[in-house]
């Protein structure tokens, strides 16, 4: 629409939200039980699961809320202070 206020889907619509982070989640896949509760509960959708069930974090946008570490019963994710 002519000059209309229409927006298209893109990552980072709110900016590089990883910059907001004070603490960073670090995943130890050797301790991971592949329950994927971190994936389920991550508000941002920055916890990704691979074909073997392994987990990684998209740090570009992870806001560091710490929910993934909190819901991880195996304690495979720990929050580390950003320097």
């Amino acid at each position: 629409m002519l000059g209309g206020p229409v927006s298209k889907a893109t990552e980072g619509a709110g900016g590089l939200t990883g910059m907001w982070r004070i603490r960073r989640p670090e995943v130890d896949n050797s301790m991971c039980t592949k329950c994927h509760l971190c994936w389920l509960f991550c508000p941002e959708g920055v916890v990704r699961r691979g074909c073997k069930g392994e987990i990684w974090i998209v740090y570009e946008f992870c806001k560091g809320c710490g929910i993934c570490a909190e819901v991880c019963a195996a304690r495979a994710i720990r929050m580390v202070r950003e320097v």
Binding site: L2, G3, G4, P5, V6, S7, K8, A9
Partner: peptide, 18 residues
Amino acid sequence: TTYGNMASPERMMEIRHS
């Protein structure tokens, strides 16, 4: 598309102008 989310002052004037 998303219609009508926040327009910054950098965009609003042009929208009104059109």
